[in-house]
Design a protein around this nucleic acid. Structure first.
Lengths: 201, 208
DNA sequence: ACTTTACTTTCAAAAGC
DNA sequence: GCTTTAAAAAGTAAAGT
């Protein structure tokens, strides 16, 4: 082949935020025993875990509430959903006469996302060429790659799909996916997927 | 200063005591697994590095020894699963795996990605199969790797399926059950890998 | 054999053992 | 280090039909 055919693979990933873990600070100590008595559908077993478990149906998130007035909220799929969930949790607690005065301080601690690069990844080659990676197919099918900047961990599968975790801002997720795509392509570890002739019965 | 020397000597003696105990464990587990001296020596070297880096603190000597043995087997291409090694310790697979990951991250121990072919030799010899069958199984795995069929899959399961196919083709048939047993995977896994390999590589199998 | 459920890996925070 | 929460990826496992 003489002519130089465009050998770069199109970067059209599908990225979705799957879970956001955040802490909420209320600056006010709470009586978890009173909460367990008055608020329905909560789980509280201090011998097993110091936090009271409160599940909100919409948005569907789960909150761990501590007596210090701090909470952990998990399950939100966007920042908007997270904020809405925190407001509703507090509104619900107030409804059951739990005294809360100050306004909550929300901090995102971890963002988990999934992505699909739409390429096949040669994990054996990637494991050999990438730094800071671990690929042990007898224990887990994905290659575990620790990226320094942004500081996230990616679980890369041969299907081209991946999991990105450890990010604190959504921007870091997009940056990390673009960066790993470029890196894998540069190292010649990606191959386009044959065809997507899925328009069949 | 005298004090400094004393502290150093105390640390050295604690390392020595740790090593002595670890070497006993290493010898015991290594012999139960039937490992050659070269593998045990390599494991001893890895363990010594771990102690010197203080990686054994807060962990059981036994699980770090087991992890060192696993790392050594991988480096020497001796097929042994983590479960096989962990069964001779009080620690469970999860704890040994955790120690193994620690060794990989903290020590400069290069461990190659496991190769299903290494399991072929072990499974084949345990089943008393011919060299020709093992060679055929290795060839099947090579083709599978080239078309990207092996990524992310358990090498033991892949080797078991390749052995099953190769034995069938060479009239040395073994049941999926006996292969699965020596390979340390379930029959379902052997069957799944078998289907995939025969279909994707278009390997014709006569009857059942 | 098929489906369902569940476990492997990664991450972060909370309070306390 | 452990305990608890949630979520995805793909492979493996076990239980029930």
């Amino acid at each position: 082949m003489v002519s130089v055919i465009s050998n770069s693979i199109a970067y059209k990933p599908i990225i979705s935020i799957e879970n956001i873990v955040a802490t909420v600070t209320l600056d006010e100590s709470l009586d978890l025993y009173a909460m367990e008595r008055s608020v329905p559908n909560v789980e509280y077993d201090p011998d097993q875990f110091p936090g009271l478990i409160f599940r909100l149906e919409t948005p569907k998130v789960t909150s761990l509430i501590f007596k210090s007035g701090k909470m952990v909220v998990t399950g939100a799929k966007s920042t908007e959903e997270l904020i809405k969930a925190v407001k509703r949790i507090i509104k619900t607690l107030k409804k059951y006469s739990i005294k809360i005065t100050g306004k909550p301080k929300i901090q995102i601690q971890n963002i988990v996302a999934s992505a699909n690069l739409h390429v096949h990844v040669n994990l054996d080659k990637a494991a050999f060429l990438l730094e800071n990676n671990m690929y042990e197919p007898e224990q887990f099918p994905g290659l575990i790659y620790r990226m320094d900047d942004p500081r996230v961990v990616l679980l890369i599968f041969s299907s081209g799909k991946m999991v990105i975790t450890g990010a604190k801002r959504e921007e870091e997720v997009y940056k990390a996916v673009k960066k790993i795509f470029d890196k894998l392509e540069e190292l010649d570890c990606v191959r386009p997927i044959e065809e997507e002739d899925e328009i069949e019965i | 200063r005298w004090r400094k020397w004393q502290v150093r000597a105390r640390i050295q003696s604690s390392i020595d005591r740790n090593l002595a105990q670890a070497m006993n464990e290493l010898e015991r587990i290594g012999n139960l697994l039937g490992l050659p001296k070269s593998v045990k020596d390599e494991a001893a070297l890895i363990y010594r590095k771990a102690v010197e880096k203080g990686l054994v603190r807060g962990r059981s000597i036994e699980s770090v020894v087991a992890a060192s043995i696993y790392a050594s087997c991988r480096r020497m291409k001796i097929a042994r699963t983590l479960d096989e090694i962990a069964q001779y310790t009080k620690a469970n697979r999860k704890e040994v795996a955790r120690c193994y990951r620690l060794l990989l991250r903290e020590l400069d121990v290069e461990v190659p990605v496991s190769d299903p072919k290494d399991y072929v030799t072990r499974i084949g010899s345990l089943l008393g199969l011919s060299g020709a069958t093992m060679k055929l199984a290795a060839e099947i795995l090579e083709k599978a790797k080239n078309v990207g069929l092996t990524a992310g899959k358990d090498p033991a399961g892949l080797a078991a399926a390749a052995i099953y196919i190769a034995a069938l083709l060479n009239d040395e048939r073994r049941t999926q059950k006996e292969i699965a047993q020596v390979a340390g995977v379930t029959e379902v896994t052997v069957r799944n890998r078998y289907k995939e390999l025969t279909q994707e590589l278009k390997i014709p199998i006569q009857n059942q």
